[in-house]
């Protein structure tokens, strides 16, 4: 736990969200001045209007939503499996999405259909784990985890197969997708309804998440229907992950590192942790994507490389500091 009040942390994160979006709009191959940016936001005419509103804004919002959804899904998965190594992709959802997306690329489908294919692949993978793990009824996180991890390995093999079979000219696109890339990303409006809705449901059950992290028996003894709660969490996390993966491919580390980092900063009460993780994940990915498209300008890096390269040392630092404090 940190020395700061939760309200201070949450409001700082809110400010960070706002700033990260501003920076994403300002910085790029052409640096827009603060003055121009202000004029554009206040709906005045400006030569950079199209650049900012048509190119940078959709991409910044895509990064923002994707980061928030991945961080939220990561929090949920870690409670569900009561395993700190769990991330949104652990159950093979990104693998299923990747197989479907790469197959679509292999078949030469239109670029606009790739996210649809990815979403369908992710949902199919989720249903497969659901059917495999359900067995004779009661929830078992071990069986769930095993089915998911084995399925993920299977998807991995299929991805390698598709990469091996794919023509050379589509390999670059496939690899970028696999590393997570926001260059052509945009957020369909349904996500702007679904994401807040799912977040709200998660917040309603936030105290139950605290109880569930004490173990299934304890949670049941404290009045939780753990079976129903577990399936609800799995469903929420899966849909969030599927949407994120459909928008941006499989961006790593955000869903693993942001929840842990926020636990170290704000504690493990999910009523504070969930909003903190959503805001931190959203601003982290927005800033990471801004870096990805500026750091080796005019080249663009897949944002997944940036999240890994910055996320790992950041997380290790927080862990080191937490150890010193205790």
């Amino acid at each position: 736990m940190s020395r700061f009040q939760p309200i201070t942390i949450l409001s700082s994160l809110g400010v960070l969200c706002f700033l990260s979006l501003l920076v994403a709009l300002k910085v790029g191959s052409v640096a827009v001045s603060w003055n121009d940016l202000w004029l554009i936001i206040s709906a005045a005419e400006n030569p950079w209007k199209d650049l900012v509103l048509q190119l940078r804004l959709p991409r910044a919002l895509a990064a923002f939503a994707t980061g928030g959804m991945l961080a939220l899904a990561g929090c949920l998965m870690q409670v569900l499996l009561r395993n700190p190594l769990a991330d949104p992709y652990i159950m093979g959802i990104s693998g299923g999405a990747a197989c479907a997306a790469l197959s679509a690329m292999l078949l030469g489908l239109a670029a606009s259909l790739i996210p649809v294919a990815a979403f369908i692949g992710a949902m199919a993978s989720m249903l497969l784990v659901f059917a495999l793990a359900r067995g004779d009824g009661p929830w078992s996180s071990t069986r769930m985890l095993l089915s998911g991890v084995v399925l993920a390995a299977g998807w991995g093999a299929l991805i390698s197969l598709i990469l091996a079979l794919g023509p050379d000219n589509s390999l670059r696109g496939m690899l970028f997708w696999l590393m997570g890339d926001l260059s052509n990303a945009s957020v369909p409006s349904v996500v702007w309804v679904a994401f807040p809705g799912l977040f709200l449901i998660a917040m309603l059950r936030a105290r139950s998440l605290n109880i569930l992290s004490l173990g299934e028996v304890t949670a049941a003894a404290l009045g939780e229907n753990t079976n129903r709660l577990s399936w609800l969490i799995y469903l929420l996390a899966s849909i969030l992950t599927a949407m994120a993966v459909a928008i941006a491919g499989s961006i790593g580390f955000v869903g693993l590192i942001i929840p842990h980092a926020m636990r170290l900063i704000i504690g493990s009460d999910h009523r504070l942790l969930l909003p903190a993780a959503v805001m931190a994940g959203a601003s982290f990915l927005t800033l990471a994507d801004t870096l990805a498209r500026t750091v080796v300008n005019p080249l663009q890096l897949p944002v997944g490389i940036i999240t890994a390269l910055t996320g790992v040392p950041l997380f290790l630092y927080l862990l080191y500091r937490a150890k010193l404090q205790s």
Binding site: P84, N210, S213, L222
Partner: peptide
């Protein structure tokens, strides 16, 4: 009772 994430004593007792 197992604890997978770090809760404080006060949080734990409030879970009752």
């Amino acid at each position: 009772v197992s604890h997978s994430f770090e809760a404080t004593v006060l949080q734990m007792v409030l879970s009752g």
